[in-house]
Amino acid sequence: MKAIGFKTSLPITEKESFIEFEAPVPKAEGHDLLVKIKAISINPVDFKIRQNAAKDTILDTPKVIGWDACGVVEAVGDEVTLFKKGDEVYYAGDINRSGSNAEYQLVDERITGKKPLSLTAAEAAAMPLTVLTAWEILFDRIRISPEKDKGKSLLIIGGAGGMGSIAIQLAKKIAGLTVIATASRPESIQWCKEMGADIVVDHRNLSAAMNAAGFNTVDFILDFVDTSAYWDAMADLIKPQGHIASITGAGTPVALNKLKSKSVSFSWEFMFTRSSFQTDDMQEQHHILNRVADLLDDGVLKHTLTTTLNGLTAGNLKTAHGLQEGGKTIGKTVILL
């Protein structure tokens, strides 16, 4: 099968930042599905892994990355009960396994969902990683309840990217929150509004922008951009007994003492935790993807695909990574095989 990977971490402009090669088709065993991939999408985690996984070294075998895909089940392992050959699926995979930048991939059935019937393969491939992350950060980490939290305020830092695009929708349509999103360009502001944001503010002077919009504090904050850069603003804007959650990590220790006087909770969200540690509730990701597939098919949620590239090539992966690294993408970029 055709696969695309890298042997060393290089700038995306370098010729061998991605290389095409032939690899054997893997065999499905246990809980694994062998999926013939139809489409993949690119997330910030892709370029971050590419930049750091093979620094100052040359791997013997190319590393294949990629954590969003839609495809058809070609074969199943002997412990599989959730899917059968011929089923269309979508998933975000496992960060510790070979990725989706290939014609075939193995993925555990417990972190795989049924493809939304109403979406094309490209539209479906745009969704899994962001859907799982946004769902988990809202409902598993902060534990927002539509019954008790309806009408409360949520600030989303990074509203127009793939993550913000679906988080706005889930927060508004499912949780019933008042959603404030950050964006600064006319096109990204408009996109956030189309996704359902009640208010859009400029991230460049966040506290002042929030105050000008009539919010001195908010109940919840999601950071999809840079924990360290926005930490002081988040500590300032969060309500007493509120909750902040982030996916971005921090290059330096986070000053949690800034939250102490307000009794504020803080959570990290990492979508790969369940698969990496084979947690007891690992199959919850299967259920989340299926629930979201139904919401997409019912028209409650809408896909976030904005850019489609045709063909699994090193050139297209370089283009997609370049767009992500630029930090100005709106929605999701997909490669159709």
Rank of each mutant, 00 (worst) to 15 (best):
W191S: 05
I142D: 00
D108T: 10
E29G: 05
D149P: 09
N216I: 06
A293N: 01
R50G: 00
D219K: 12
L295P: 04
E16T: 14
E136A: 13
S100W: 01
S9H: 12
C70T: 12
L33Q: 06
D140G: 08
P26C: 06
I221F: 08
H243A: 10
L119P: 00
Q278H: 14
N216K: 15
I335H: 07
I144N: 03
N96M: 14
N101E: 12
D56M: 09
S267N: 13
T217V: 12
E325F: 05
A255I: 06
T227R: 13
F266L: 05
V89I: 15
R50S: 08
T306K: 12
I221W: 03
K318M: 08
S188M: 06
K173M: 10
D78G: 14
G162S: 06
C192F: 07
V254M: 13
E20P: 05
E22F: 13
I95K: 07
F83H: 06
V45G: 00
N290V: 06
D198M: 13
S145V: 09
G66F: 04
L206P: 02
P24M: 04
N52C: 03
L222K: 11
L82N: 11
A160S: 15
A233V: 02
G86W: 13
I12L: 13
D280E: 14
K36M: 07
G93M: 06
D60R: 14
G161Q: 02
V64N: 03
I168Q: 05
A197P: 09
F224P: 02
V89L: 11
G176W: 10
S275I: 11
I199P: 04
T252R: 13
V201I: 08
S41M: 05
I247Q: 01
D108I: 07
F47K: 00
G93T: 04
G214E: 08
G327V: 08
T133Y: 01
L237I: 01
D60I: 07
I19D: 03
D236S: 15
V300T: 15
D78L: 05
K172T: 07
V107R: 06
S118A: 06
L138I: 09
Y104M: 09
T8Q: 15
L138W: 00
E88P: 04
V64D: 00
T130L: 02
G327F: 04
A209P: 10
T81W: 03
F139V: 02
G158A: 12
S98F: 03
W268P: 06
I156M: 11
E14P: 11
N216Y: 08
W231C: 09
M210C: 13
N216V: 05
D78C: 05
D226L: 03
F215G: 11
S207I: 13
T227Q: 14
L256E: 05
V179E: 01
